[in-house]
Amino acid sequence: MDADRIERVIEAVLLAADEPVSIDRMLRLFAPGELPDENPRRAVRAALDAISEATAERGFELVRVASGFRFQVRQQYSPWVSRLLDERPPRYSRALLETLALIVYRQPVTRGDIEEIRGVSVSQSIMRTLLERGWIRVVGQRETPGRPALYGTTRTFLDYFNLTSLDDLPPMDEIESLMKPVLDDAKAADEGGAGGVPPPNKSAPAPHEPPDPPPMAEIIQMPPA
């Protein structure tokens, strides 16, 4: 099979797949003799490079994440694509995102560790949501009284945030950039959603506004209370 046909096959596979496809899985899709015998993996990588180059100016891109490769809409075109979808993306509270950020940068951690750093209790619903999303998992138990569960992140978390490994995490002071897509949704949820907030009553006294929360990076680096 020539290089152009290998490229088209892989392109079709990526379009049909509903999850990232690893190179090992791509290799298994070809019958014996369809890839060059001397270095089939190199042939697949060359096809992926060609696809990436061919889509450089398109509305979608080839992205490598922890589980493999996938096509996805470029971020700048997501507002238009979202109008096509009936289901609105989930919205997450800042408390949930702060909890996730602490697990990401301090893993493995217990729920008690997170509560000590944030200075407030972590609701069971937050931990349940993170577990159900598949972003965190129990990675062990701490050898202390009660043997509390230790939490860490998952491959699903890496895939969602377009990371190939934890080594790709931005520095702590840039955590807001990593969380930006879901932070925007959280802000909209806190405000009641676009178009869902009535205009303020100018004759009423201005309500007391709580101070802005500290930056997420500052929270992550806080010592336990």
Rank of each mutant, 00 (worst) to 15 (best):
148 P>D: 03
194 A>N: 01
117 I>S: 05
192 G>Q: 00
61 E>N: 06
60 F>E: 09
183 L>H: 05
147 R>H: 10
201 N>E: 13
53 E>S: 14
222 M>A: 11
222 M>E: 09
130 L>R: 05
110 T>L: 00
42 R>G: 09
107 Q>M: 04
142 R>W: 08
152 G>Q: 06
89 P>M: 01
28 R>M: 04
183 L>T: 07
38 E>G: 11
133 R>L: 14
189 A>R: 03
25 R>P: 02
206 A>R: 13
163 L>K: 04
172 M>N: 06
56 A>Q: 07
138 V>S: 11
25 R>N: 06
223 P>K: 05
38 E>S: 15
133 R>T: 11
180 K>D: 14
172 M>E: 12
81 V>K: 08
69 F>C: 01
187 K>W: 06
24 D>R: 12
6 I>M: 05
97 L>I: 15
85 L>E: 07
161 F>C: 01
171 P>G: 02
174 E>K: 13
59 G>P: 01
164 T>W: 01
108 P>D: 00
28 R>F: 00
206 A>S: 09
7 E>I: 04
97 L>T: 13
148 P>Y: 02
13 V>D: 07
117 I>C: 04
175 I>C: 08
64 R>M: 12
183 L>K: 05
146 G>P: 04
15 L>W: 13
85 L>D: 02
41 R>G: 06
65 V>D: 06
168 D>M: 03
221 Q>W: 01
191 E>T: 00
37 D>C: 09
140 G>Y: 08
12 A>L: 07
9 V>W: 02
27 L>K: 02
9 V>I: 06
157 F>C: 08
215 P>W: 12
208 H>L: 03
141 Q>E: 14
204 A>W: 10
157 F>V: 09
170 P>H: 00
33 G>Y: 07
224 P>H: 10
104 V>I: 13
219 I>H: 01
215 P>Y: 12
205 P>H: 05
